[in-house]
């Protein structure tokens, strides 16, 4: 649905050039919720703004719904933008207009007849849960409500793609959740392709199917959310994953780690699915002459699948422990990774 092909964006500043995007390649399929994460200044906004040409790439190609948007005339581009909705961190609503007029605006610009506009806007406001706010002004709404207006407005022209630039960054966690749920609903009901830019890994975990990690204008890692969360390859991805997985080892456990020897070894077990972790441990305890102690554990849900992280301590004969490790390694289906020496 959206293809970035060797997209480079260079800003010509007064003193220096800034390479905000460096030969970015990305492929976003129809109906996907695709997240792009990166630190401040990584180039995320530049990337998303290249999709509707709020920013023109310096080189490379951007294909949206089969159209090379860099080759469109001004008129064709305006036309194309009707099928690309966008929502913003600071909502960017017209303060001088009612909620109704804000949502109607894209339709008014397209000269849609008044009665059709009314029907469409009423439907949209009902969809985002603001049917009773049609005649309110933006300054009478909470942040979450403003973003709902923003979403309704973005959907007015029945777009195929929705761009979200830090759409929840100005909202509290509770409101963020409800807006993300709304985006999920949009995605499911209209089969809309959604591109989300964020610096919060929680947003990615909550609703994205795929994720790309952007660092200094380069995509350093990309894949399904599941793969990136379970096996982050780059240091930056690991940091982002750690920020939401809570798999840091507590200090008390760390003291034990330092004290380990051949007869007391500590391992990290990462497992996927509910039936994975606990049964394995009880099985080990039964089959081997090894005492199993769970020192720390956390379970996070990723796209509906539990994703666990256990720190366990094996007490016993060194040979026996090694057999246990062998056993765990053979469980290739459920055990993703076993790390010795967690320090």
């Amino acid at each position: 649905m959206i293809t970035f092909d060797q997209v480079t964006k260079i800003y010509n500043g007064k003193e220096q050039q800034v390479k905000a995007l460096d030969q970015v390649n990305l492929q976003i399929e129809k109906g996907e919720i695709y997240g792009v994460i990166g630190f401040s200044g990584a180039g995320k906004s530049s990337l998303i703004r290249c999709v509707n040409l709020l920013e023109r790439p310096t080189s490379g190609k951007v294909i949206v719904d089969g159209q090379d948007i860099l080759n469109l005339s001004a008129k064709e581009l305006r036309e194309a933008k009707r099928s690309i909705g966008m929502i913003f961190q600071h909502f960017n609503l017209l303060n001088s207009k009612t909620v109704y007029t804000n949502v109607a605006m894209p339709l008014l610009l397209a000269n849609i007849p008044k009665n059709e506009v009314k029907k469409r806007v009423d439907d949209l406001l009902a969809f985002v849960g603001l049917a009773d706010k049609a005649n309110s002004y933006p300054d009478q709404l909470s942040g979450g409500q403003k973003q709902r207006v923003g979403i309704a407005r973005a959907l007015a022209t029945k777009p195929k793609v929705l761009l979200c630039d830090e759409a929840t960054s100005a909202l509290d966690p509770e409101t963020t959740k409800s807006i993300l749920q709304l985006l999920k609903k949009v995605n499911e009901e209209y089969n809309l392709t959604i591109l989300i830019i964020t610096h919060e890994m929680g947003v990615i975990r909550e609703i994205c199917d795929k994720v790309a990690v952007l660092d200094s204008g380069k995509v350093v890692e990309a894949g399904s959310v599941f793969d990136v969360f379970s096996q982050p390859r780059t240091e930056i991805a690991k940091n982002f994953v750690r920020s939401v997985m809570h798999d840091e080892i507590p200090e008390s456990v760390y003291q034990l780690v330092k004290a380990q020897d051949e007869r007391h070894q500590i391992y990290r077990i990462v497992f996927v699915g509910s039936s994975a972790g606990a049964p394995l441990l009880s099985q080990i305890a039964k089959q081997y002459a090894v005492e199993v102690n769970v020192l720390f554990g956390s379970i996070t849900e990723l796209q509906g699948i539990p994703f666990g992280n256990l720190i366990v301590k094996f007490d016993g004969d060194e040979k026996e422990i090694n057999r246990v490790i062998m056993h765990i390694h053979q469980q290739d289906v459920t055990i993703k990774e076993v790390l010795a020496d967690v320090s």
């Binding site: 305006r78 009707r82 761009l163």
Partner: peptide
Amino acid sequence: DPGVMEAAQAMGAT
């Protein structure tokens, strides 16, 4: 607010 102008542009306003 430049953001409002941006939203207008994103909507495909002339």
